[in-house]
């Protein structure tokens, strides 16, 4: 689904001493099927932004469109339920939302709230559990007997079972070990392609933004600070550093190569092995200077 923010502002507790402008005149759009990374420090407005995507909050000013759904300041949307079925949100530490006696019931919770038929739910539950790489034997276990990483996968399966068109991920790998982080991100990348989802990823990891996203939005104090393709955005090292954000390590390193060895290797998503080959040529002096 296409997503458009049109001059969206959001203010917490307006006209009170605690008034706080979380989003200020935010405008951007991306088309169906994009993988968008939203980056910014704590307090930059990221979590307020994603709450607009399934109508958990309404813009104080401006309008948000998600496919054919519209959220407009001051107007009540009567189709919130439908919208929430179409937009699945994986919150930070999603394992905290588990509550059912069995994994199966917890995964089925979302779809049954949206009135999906029983047979259909069974099918979806199976698909979802295998999508998150857990075995079907787990379905009858209590989610509270699982390890932290497994609980997170169950919670994600619960969102996938809603069969959403848009998947919103709020730091889905926070607190996992590096291996778990990579597994989860690879899983989302695969689902994104397979199910032709529109994915919005909130992350602190520049590497994830570089590796998985095709569009990056950097927020600062509730405003869009930078926006564009990852490779373009990460070229602007100074601009990023001035808001205390890093560039991905590989780009940082290639910049240093250019400075010390005076050789430019531009990054176009090469693997480490490919980079090593290019670098080896530089060192051996056999690199063509066309």
């Amino acid at each position: 689904m296409d997503i458009t923010f049109d001059h969206v502002s959001y203010t917490y507790q307006p006209n009170s001493p605690f008034e706080h402008h979380a989003l200020k005149d935010l405008s951007f759009q991306f088309s169906s099927g994009s993988f968008v990374a939203v980056i910014g420090h704590t307090g930059s407005g990221k979590s307020t932004l994603i709450q607009h995507l399934n109508g958990l909050v309404q813009p104080t000013e401006g309008a948000v469109s998600i496919g054919s759904y519209h959220l407009q300041a001051g107007k009540k949307n009567k189709k919130l339920r439908e919208l929430r079925e179409k937009v699945g949100v994986v919150f930070q530490y999603p394992e905290h939302q588990l509550f059912e006696e069995t994994v199966e019931k917890d995964i089925a919770f979302g779809p049954s709230n949206f009135g999906v038929g029983e047979e259909d739910i069974k099918q979806r539950t199976k698909e979802a559990i295998s999508a998150v790489h857990l075995s079907e034997d787990m379905l009858q276990r209590s989610p509270f007997d699982l390890s932290g990483g497994q609980m997170r996968r169950v919670a994600i399966a619960g969102v996938l079972a809603m069969d959403p068109d848009v998947l919103v991920l709020d730091e889905p790998t926070a607190g996992l070990d590096p291996r778990g982080q990579k597994e989860i991100m690879d899983m989302f990348a695969r689902l994104h392609k397979q199910k032709q989802l529109t994915t919005v990823l909130v992350t602190h990891s520049m590497e994830d933004a570089l590796n998985y996203a095709d569009h990056v939005i950097i927020l600062k104090d509730g405003e869009v600070y930078k926006e564009g393709a990852p490779l373009e955005i990460f070229k602007e090292k100074e601009a990023l550093q001035s808001v205390q954000l890093d560039v991905p390590e590989v780009i940082e390193f290639l910049g240093e190569v250019e400075r010390t060895l005076d050789e430019k290797i531009s990054y176009q998503g090469q693997s480490i092995a490919e980079l090593a080959k290019e670098l080896a040529q530089v060192v051996k002096g056999g690199r063509d200077h066309e």
């Binding site: 958990l56 937009v87 999603p94």
Partner: peptide, 10 residues
């Protein structure tokens, strides 16, 4: 936080 997560699940 939890009520928002559950609201998102319908």
């Amino acid at each position: 936080k939890i009520s928002k997560a559950q609201a998102s699940r319908g």
